[in-house]
């Protein structure tokens, strides 16, 4: 009797449990534990809500993430639309050029922004932060929107045109709704990493602005593991909620799409 090959997955399953599931569980355990006594407590969360500095950093990070996401969307949608239109762009290389920066280290791209501001003799600060964030995450918005526009069946558009829709009607009633799944995944791909960045804001603002990721990192580095875990758990919840909203948006849109 030979060994069933499905058992080959077991070592990896054990590995995943040890190094993926267990560590996440540990965050949850530490978050609900008192740093001194190790007893169950909600104190770490209470501390977060009663520390104005941390709470403000958290709210500010959400604001930065929303602004970044919206700016990326406004800039990326036209670009993705142009890239997907064969009248304007026939080359896959242009598409590649837009996607390539996704693969370059975030830190390096951030320092590249610093270089640009140095070169143009512009001061670093909140302007640099917004620019740097949009610069870092723009490719992550262009790519999914481009994909959804590219895959779109052009006969829908032709049908709308034949039935007398004006170009703006075609866009608002056909193209835009059909590209919503791409928009949603772009929003997720930008919002989620923006909310969890750290180290970037400091470099772009010469330590004037701090984002929530840095608050977490500082607490972990300074040995406040329980409080740091609680903050990490809060971030995980935000990210979980965002992806739920994104999924919801996506399924709603695709259901709508099915009705056409």
């Amino acid at each position: 009797m030979r060994v069933k090959r499905s058992t080959w997955a077991y070592p990896y399953l054990v590995f995943l449990i040890l190094f993926v599931a267990l560590p996440l569980l540990m965050i949850a355990v530490y978050a609900f534990r008192d740093a001194q006594t190790g007893a169950f407590t909600l104190g770490n969360f209470a501390r977060f809500f009663s520390t104005p500095q941390d709470l403000n950093t958290f709210l500010y990070s959400i604001q930065v993430a929303i602004v970044t996401t919206l700016l990326c969307l406004v800039i990326a949608y036209p670009a993705a639309w142009i890239l997907s239109k064969s009248d304007f762009n026939r080359s896959k290389i242009t598409v590649m050029l837009f996607i390539l920066p996704m693969w370059i280290n975030m830190l390096i791209r951030t320092l590249a922004t610093v270089a640009l501001f140095d070169f143009l003799r512009l001061p670093l600060g909140e302007g640099a932060l917004t620019f740097g964030m949009v610069y870092n995450f723009l490719p992550f918005m262009i790519y999914p929107i481009y994909n959804s526009l590219e895959k779109m069946d052009s006969s829908y558009i032709e049908a709308a045109q034949d039935l007398g829709a004006t170009p703006s009607q075609v866009f608002l009633k056909v193209t835009l709704p059909l590209s919503m799944p791409g928009v949603w995944s772009g929003v997720l791909m930008v919002f989620m990493p923006t909310i969890s960045t750290f180290a970037i804001a400091e470099l772009l603002t010469l330590n004037k602005v701090k984002l929530f990721g840095t608050t977490i990192q500082e607490n972990i580095n300074n040995g406040f593991w329980n409080y740091g875990s609680a903050l990490a758990l809060i971030m995980l919840v935000i990210i979980g909620l965002t992806s739920l909203v994104g999924d919801e948006g996506n399924t709603r849109e695709s259901e709508k799409g099915g009705l056409i």
Binding site: P23, L24, M26, I216, W225, A232
Partner: peptide, 17 residues
Amino acid sequence: IPMLNPDIITGISLFIL
């Protein structure tokens, strides 16, 4: 999970472990 998890969470979770 590792593909969806933000880097910082992966890092912290392993650090805590």
